Amino acid sequence: MLVKDILDKKDRKILSVEPQTTVWEAIRFMTKYDIGSVIVLNAGKLAGIFTERDLLHFASTDRDGVFDKTVGDVMSTQLTTMQPTDQVDDVLAIMLKKRIRHMPILDGNRLVGIISIGDAVKAKIEKTEEENKNLKNYIYSESGLM
């Protein structure tokens, strides 16, 4: 299964903020859409990602005025990205190894979506269930039990 297969099942709308968005505004935005991270775009280009973890790390070191800081001050900029043609198994392995919960997906330099670890796990489970069903059908049809 490819990453594009996950993206094809998802809403293609990419929720994003700009680097000058305040942390408070980003938190309200994330709460409104019930998401744990938000893509940060600067002039339409991927600049970073702001996550719940970014907020916690920053607040633990500088709690005064944390909500007045900008997302650009606290976002993650060292991003691991994947492509729509990558295998979901590969993406899942990287997400687990690097402890990443949200992965931006780029087609060339263009952001085409984001998948969560939940999306990847769900796709893996669906693939495994389909393989199990096919194997059972094959075994039963070969043995004449069907």
Rank of each mutant, 00 (worst) to 15 (best):
residue 25 E to Q: 14
residue 125 I to R: 09
residue 2 L to Y: 04
residue 42 N to S: 15
residue 84 P to A: 10
residue 21 T to F: 02
residue 132 N to D: 08
residue 73 D to A: 07
residue 105 I to L: 09
residue 75 M to V: 09
residue 111 L to K: 07
residue 47 A to F: 11
residue 98 K to S: 12
residue 79 L to I: 06
residue 108 G to E: 13
residue 59 A to Q: 05
residue 5 D to K: 03
residue 68 D to W: 02
residue 36 G to A: 13
residue 25 E to T: 10
residue 85 T to S: 14
residue 19 P to N: 08
residue 89 D to T: 15
residue 48 G to V: 10
residue 86 D to H: 09
residue 124 K to Q: 09
residue 117 I to H: 05
residue 127 K to M: 14
residue 41 L to M: 11
residue 47 A to Y: 11
residue 8 D to N: 13
residue 65 G to H: 11
residue 61 T to P: 00
residue 102 H to E: 06
residue 136 K to C: 03
residue 84 P to N: 07
residue 67 F to P: 02
residue 70 T to M: 02
residue 23 V to A: 05
residue 146 M to Q: 08
residue 142 E to K: 14
residue 141 S to V: 03
residue 104 P to N: 11
residue 66 V to S: 04
residue 41 L to E: 05
residue 19 P to S: 09
residue 4 K to D: 13
residue 40 V to Y: 01
residue 100 I to H: 09
residue 143 S to V: 08
residue 66 V to F: 12
residue 25 E to F: 04
residue 35 I to H: 00
residue 37 S to D: 12
residue 55 L to E: 05
residue 68 D to H: 07
residue 85 T to N: 11
residue 42 N to G: 13
residue 85 T to Q: 10
residue 135 L to E: 10
residue 32 K to G: 06
residue 88 V to P: 01
residue 35 I to A: 02
residue 89 D to V: 14
residue 68 D to C: 02
residue 49 I to G: 04
residue 95 M to S: 06
residue 23 V to Y: 00
residue 126 E to Q: 14
residue 57 H to V: 15
residue 20 Q to A: 11
residue 14 I to T: 11
residue 2 L to P: 02
residue 143 S to Q: 08
residue 118 G to K: 00
residue 98 K to F: 08
residue 83 Q to S: 15
residue 94 I to G: 03
residue 31 T to I: 08
residue 136 K to F: 04
residue 63 R to N: 07
residue 68 D to R: 10
residue 14 I to C: 07
residue 130 E to D: 08
residue 49 I to Q: 03
residue 28 R to C: 05
residue 46 L to Y: 00
residue 95 M to Y: 04
residue 53 R to D: 10
residue 18 E to P: 01
residue 132 N to G: 08
residue 20 Q to S: 13
residue 130 E to L: 12
residue 12 R to C: 06
residue 43 A to S: 15
residue 93 A to G: 12
residue 17 V to H: 00
residue 108 G to C: 12
residue 135 L to S: 06
residue 119 D to T: 14
residue 69 K to C: 05
residue 92 L to C: 10
residue 99 R to D: 15
residue 37 S to C: 13
residue 135 L to V: 05
residue 20 Q to H: 09
residue 84 P to D: 10
residue 32 K to D: 12
residue 10 K to S: 04
residue 38 V to T: 14
residue 90 D to C: 01
residue 38 V to P: 00
residue 53 R to N: 10
residue 67 F to T: 11
residue 21 T to Y: 01
residue 132 N to P: 00
residue 94 I to W: 01
residue 53 R to W: 04
residue 123 A to W: 01
residue 26 A to F: 06
